[in-house]
């Protein structure tokens, strides 16, 4: 009997608590420390603050759920009506809703015109010392009109007037490694490239920007993919090339009535100053 009553108390308590969870408390979803998407996003919205004395402080609220993949962010946001997160424009699907930032919607044309604030570049990086002919040919394909057309399908091409591809027909194996954000477009580029140069063989290893770059510097791969700018130390051994322009979109649950947020509101939400959706003016 006693055990039963304890059990009943626990059930009742958890019901009360889950009822509390039904307020409009914002559930912030962020990416893990070191993710290229996180560092770009937090710098863009001044969540990461650089001090004059060289200090850097990431003020993302400690209450934010940490998801280690774009897909996990999407699942979390689509499953929780109070959630907010951020992902790459190319990964956006219709299970979540992208909000406009400062009244500008996250559309390709707005990113291209520079009106949409949260744009970033995708890079590839090759060792300065030497690149194999096969890797060079693949890079020239990526930067050609054909390659940029592939990029333009889900992201934004860097160069609309690129010359068309002239292959050197190089055969050989190319290893590409790095950012999981760049990975989807790289897979498509690989497919298109193998159609024009069947002699080549491309292996793509998905990890993250930093490890891709260090792999390229150590000669473990031919081309690194990076979703963030290269650091000073990395620029000593690697040469970056911009291959696409991406935007970071802030996503909310489809049931959420909010469709626009200002940059300040985004900063306040992600630093934990605003913790409830009622704090946002619609």
């Amino acid at each position: 009997m006693k055990a039963f009553s304890i059990f009943a108390v626990i059930i009742a308590a958890s019901m009360t608590f889950s009822a509390c969870g039904k307020t409009n408390e914002i559930a912030v979803i962020t990416r893990e420390d070191g993710s290229g998407t996180r560092s770009t996003f937090t710098e863009m919205f001044e969540i990461t603050v650089k001090g004059d004395d060289g200090t850097v402080t990431d003020n993302t609220t400690l209450e934010a759920t940490v998801a280690n993949q774009t897909e996990v962010v999407i699942t979390n946001v689509s499953g929780n009506k109070n959630a907010i997160g951020y992902i790459s424009l190319g990964s956006l699907n219709d299970t979540v809703k992208a909000v406009s930032i400062d009244g500008v919607s996250a559309e390709t044309k707005n990113v291209k015109s520079g009106e949409y604030k949260a744009a970033r570049e995708f890079f590839i990086a090759t060792p300065k010392a030497s690149a194999s002919p096969a890797a060079e040919d693949f890079i020239s394909f990526i930067l050609s009109a054909e390659g940029q057309a592939v990029v333009g399908k889900s992201y934004i091409a860097v160069n609309d007037t690129a010359p068309s591809y002239v292959g050197n027909g190089a055969a050989g194996k190319i290893t590409v490694a790095g950012s999981s954000s760049v990975n989807p477009v790289m897979e498509k580029l690989k497919e298109a490239y193998l159609a024009v140069n069947p002699n080549a063989e491309i292996e793509i290893q998905m990890s993250d920007s930093s490890s891709g770059l260090s792999n390229a510097a150590e000669g473990l791969c031919d081309i690194a993919m990076s979703s963030r700018k290269l650091k000073e130390a990395e620029l000593e051994t690697l040469m970056p090339t911009t291959i696409a322009i991406d935007a970071i979109v802030v996503i909310v649950n489809k049931e959420n009535a909010i469709s626009n947020l200002t940059s300040d509101e985004i900063n306040d939400i992600f630093t934990g100053k605003i913790t409830d959706w009622s704090g946002i003016s619609k």
Partner: peptide, 20 residues
Amino acid sequence: IFKGVRTLTSNIVLEMGYAE
């Protein structure tokens, strides 16, 4: 107990790929 938490194992897996 209704708040999130990070365990030792998750800490390693989440950040190992990026860490240097």
